[in-house]
Design a protein around this nucleic acid. Sequence first.
DNA 1: CGTGAGCTTGAATAGCTTCAAAGCCGGTGG
DNA 2: CCACCGGCTTTGAAGCTATTCAAGCTCACG
Lengths: 233, 233
Amino acid sequence: MSAVPERCLDCLVRDTALCSAMEDQELVALSAIGRRKIYPGGQVVTWSGDPNSFCANIVTGVLKVTASTPDGREQIVGLLHPGDFVGEPFAEEAPLTITAVSDTDLCLFPRESFQRTMDEHPRMEKLLLRRTMASLTQAQQRLLALGRRNAGEKIAGFLIDLCDRMAPDAEGPVEIDLPISRGEMADYLGLTIETVSRQLTGLRRDGVVSFEKGNRHFRVLDRARLEHLADPE
Amino acid sequence: MSAVPERCLDCLVRDTALCSAMEDQELVALSAIGRRKIYPGGQVVTWSGDPNSFCANIVTGVLKVTASTPDGREQIVGLLHPGDFVGEPFAEEAPLTITAVSDTDLCLFPRESFQRTMDEHPRMEKLLLRRTMASLTQAQQRLLALGRRNAGEKIAGFLIDLCDRMAPDAEGPVEIDLPISRGEMADYLGLTIETVSRQLTGLRRDGVVSFEKGNRHFRVLDRARLEHLADPE
DNA sequence: CGTGAGCTTGAATAGCTTCAAAGCCGGTGG
DNA sequence: CCACCGGCTTTGAAGCTATTCAAGCTCACG
């Protein structure tokens, strides 16, 4: 009988990824089929249309999930962070392209083995169901943003969401590092890079945010105003 | 010991709704907590923000699921048909507004009882997971449409999807009844009612579709062209 | 110090929306 | 059976927002 490997017991996401639904001794089953792999930033993890061989947990790093039109227009449909689950355990063909935004450490599972393991561990399956439901609700909120909000509202909403994720309970001015480039913000919000840039300089000019140490690092000076811009009534 | 009621055994969606994952004898558990209710077209089933008390299966009819901004802009994030599951079993508060588009017959379950029943019937839970994953993939494809496609592509794609749903394996000209109004198409595609109207007359003028017997009934004359308009390369 | 990728800024344009009015169609009542 | 009403839809003209195209800028890195 095999033991739970060290890489699981002291894993950074032991208590936030799907494995959090498992007792230590159950981890044997998952760890037996999982292996770690690091993808450098910019590298593609899965191409849309390829055979769908893997699922994964993110240990460190950020992934973007993208859909595109045949003529090359791109839409980022999701950004995934440490602890998040990656993939579609039931599709034969990968529906979307997945790319590492920064260097990313994944705990990979062959899709079919993962399905079997899930069958034997209902608590993990239940947790995956809850998370998938939550992802769906989030995607639905984003449908509203893409379909009905204008550029300013999209940008403000994006920054608010970032704050909530990075510093859920901060009071004063919040400092944030953007995980993605201007071009990726554009692909996330259904805008062009130029529109993103103009909206951000607008916010800076109005004193709502300030940028520092390069244009990836910024500070929210007036959160109330930002919230009002994101959701005007 | 109670028996499975007639309304379940000869239910129209016995083999397509979540119940299809259950043996006849298991249905006792579900039928014990479910009750049928008919909502007339136009009536709201759940308001976003209300306590999330119910889930349901659709027996007949069509529902729309909408999200809106505080100032009243609306986005249809999903259309649901007979056999589809409705609701979010894990949220305390309903995240979205659900409205009957046509007269709709629902098989309603109190949310908490439904959760318990699901715990005891893993096959049903598994089916719900599969369907939720599929809904997520569909929502992600719609994010691409809303974020990156123009009005003509949105309309063409919508009509193609309708054809695939209504007549998956038809060859010649397909006849379709639109389940929704122009205004609802606009809210589904992130457009205005006027733009939807203009695009549709454009398609008619170009001989791609024809409208008959009122503007809810149409015929696809040139599917190849419609597909090309939906996904140009 | 030079180079290049990523970002910003400006001007012109296109596409969708807004505002306004007229048309169509189904249902109701005379 | 026909006239009228009201909601939905179509059409037109004007306006505005975001895109496109084109420079120039910044900054990290060799």
